[in-house]
Structures are given as C-alpha cells and as structure tokens.
C-alpha cells in the first residue's frame, strides 16, 4: 500500500480540510514522551475532549507539541447530546475554547446521554428512537454546531438494551439526524458489530442503511464477551483488546461503501505498547489501500474528500 506522505499540518483551515484518510490512534499520556521522541508515522491522534479541560500542566504541554506535528481529532464524551436535560452551556463553552486552542481537523460526539440534572454518570447511555427523541437530539446537535461553528460527527452507539418506546430503527434515526442537522457520521464499526450481536441484527445491512457520504471517520476497537439472561452472547464495548477479525471484515465492507477514510484504533483498557497500536492503525491503512483500487476503477466517491 502507499500511505500518503505525511506532512506537517498548518492548523489554519484544519477543520475544513478534515482528517487524512489514514490510520490514527488514541493519544494516551503513557505514550506522550515516546511519540515526541520517536515521531511515529501515523495519520492522526485523537483525544477525549474532557481530559484536556484542565488549566495547564503536562496534558497541555504534550498535546500542544504533538498537535504541532500531527493532525488531531477531538472526541467528546460529556456533551450528553441524547440527554433530556438541556445542553450544559458552560461545558459547550469549554469545548469551544478547547477547539479554538487546538484547531482539530475533526470534532465528534456520541448518540448517547451521560448526564442527568447535575449528575455526570460517566457512561454512554442509550436513547429510545422515536419522534420525540429525534427532535431533541437534532436540536442539541444544531446548538453544538452553531456554538462551535463547525460540522460535528455523530457516533453510532454500542448498546446493551433496547426500548419498548422505540418506533424507528437506529439506522433510520441516525440517517434522519444527518438529514436534518447536516452533521457527519463517525462510523464506529466495533459498535456496529457489538450492537448488532446484542440485538440480533445484520451488521452489514446496518452499515448499508447509513448515509455513506456522511461518514467522516471510522472507529475500530476490541470488545469483551458476556452472555445475557438467556445465555445469548452479549458483547461489551471494552476497548480493551485488539480489533477482532469479525470487525476487520465488517470494516472492509464499510470501506467498500465509504471509501478510504480516517480510521482510529481505540484502546482505553489494557493499553499496550505504542508500536502495537501503530501496527493496528497500519493494518487499517492496508485495507484502505486494497479498497481504494477497485473503488477508483468503479468511480466510487471518496468519503474522506466529501
């Protein structure tokens, strides 16, 4: 494969340019120094926004230096877009400040809720899919995009339960959110696999039902396996293992539809040595390269350039 030659990004207009169609890894404090010392060949780094909502110190010191050298994705985990509560204006302000400071190529958040009232639950909690929640989620995304003055990507969730109140399929809900708000999609292929196993659906059909042209980034991760009360498999989005073969297979399918697009290896538990993560990101790039040739021949649109 021929990965694009890396060049130092100028941060002006980074959002407009977007992330390169390459592999990236989550930025972990245990890897800060190694990244600066070894300058690994990697397409981008991703951070969780809330971890950097601190005044100063090592996190900003290292992120500033790493951001000078690499494209950056900022991934929020605390906006609670699916929440019944109104968006937290202070939190949105903090997010706007963080984005202004680091000018990331991409900003994304989750189709989930994490706060109720003033209590933060630190988990991505599920939302029923019906007209009421659709209106609320769209309203929240409108507010986010207005305040941040940029397009955000919305990530499909990994869920363990469904709601009797739902009247729409998840893909239908997401497609409608994209249509109404103009937001993009962060297609988490591991979440697709996890949710489809957990709810006995076809993950390939799930991906086919999403608007491919809206996908601006892909996430890949590992999961843990459990069973439900009936003994059926229940997968858990643990980010604690290498990407599973079933997820790589599904990723190939996603690439065939979407084209090469920035792909993150997420690892938040049992974090291995940096080269292990880099190797997974490079594997994603190899698959992108394989997907590219036939898609160009068939005149497929390039999702990353959309």
């Amino acid at each position: 494969m021929n990965a694009p030659v890396f060049s130092v990004p100028d941060t002006i207009g980074a959002a407009a340019r977007g992330l390169p169609a390459r592999g990236g890894v989550g930025l972990k404090p245990e890897h800060f120094r190694e990244i600066l010392a070894t300058a690994p060949d990697i397409g981008f780094f991703e951070i969780h926004a809330e971890n950097y909502m601190v005044d100063g110190g090592p996190f900003h010191h290292y992120l500033g230096r790493i951001r000078e050298r690499y494209p950056l994705s900022i991934h929020g985990v605390g906006l609670s877009i699916g929440g019944e509560s109104p968006l937290d204006a202070d939190h949105l302000d903090r997010l706007a400040m963080l984005l202004a400071r680091y000018q990331p190529e991409s900003f994304s958040e989750h189709l989930a809720w994490a706060s109720h009232g003033d209590v933060f639950l630190n988990d991505l909690l599920p939302v029923p899919y019906h007209a009421g929640t659709l209106a609320r989620v769209c309203d929240h995304i409108d507010q986010v995009q207005d305040r941040l003055r940029r397009r955000m990507l919305l990530e499909n969730p990994a869920t363990y339960v469904e709601f009797a109140a739902s009247t729409m399929a998840e893909t239908e809900f997401i497609a409608e959110v994209v249509r109404r708000t103009g937001c993009g999609l962060l297609l988490d292929v591991n979440n697709v696999h996890v949710a489809c196993v957990n709810h006995h659906r076809d993950p390939y059909a799930y991906i086919d039902a999403l608007p491919a042209e809206a996908v601006g980034q892909i996430h890949l991760a590992g999961f843990a396996q459990d069973v439900d009360a009936a003994g059926e498999p229940l997968l858990i989005d643990s980010h604690g293992a290498p990407v599973a073969q079933a997820v790589w297979d599904l990723y190939r399918h996603a690439l065939a539809r979407v084209g090469p697009v920035a792909t993150l290896i997420e690892r938040d538990n049992d974090i291995p040595a940096l080269p292990v993560l880099l190797a997974e990101a490079h594997q994603a790039e190899r698959l992108m390269g394989e997907a590219l040739a036939p898609s160009i021949a068939r005149g497929f649109p390039c999702g990353a350039c959309a």
């Binding site: 972990k28 404090p29 245990e30 800060f32 951070i47 969780h48 926004a49 809330e50 971890n51 950097y52 090592p58 996190f59 991934h75 985990v77 605390g78 989750h110 630190n122 988990d123 991505l124 990994a158 991760a221 843990a224 396996q225 459990d226 858990i236 989005d237 643990s238 980010h239 604690g240 997420e266 938040d268 538990n269 049992d270």
Partner: peptide, 15 residues
C-alpha cells in the same frame, strides 16, 4: 503520568 479519566469505553471488569 496521570491518566485521562474521561473515556468512552465500558471499563474492564464490567461484565
């Protein structure tokens, strides 16, 4: 080095 405490995983041992 302190860890970042916000993330979007289901924690280890949550099964």
């Amino acid at each position: 080095a302190l860890k970042g405490k916000n993330d979007c995983k289901a924690g280890a041992g949550t099964t």
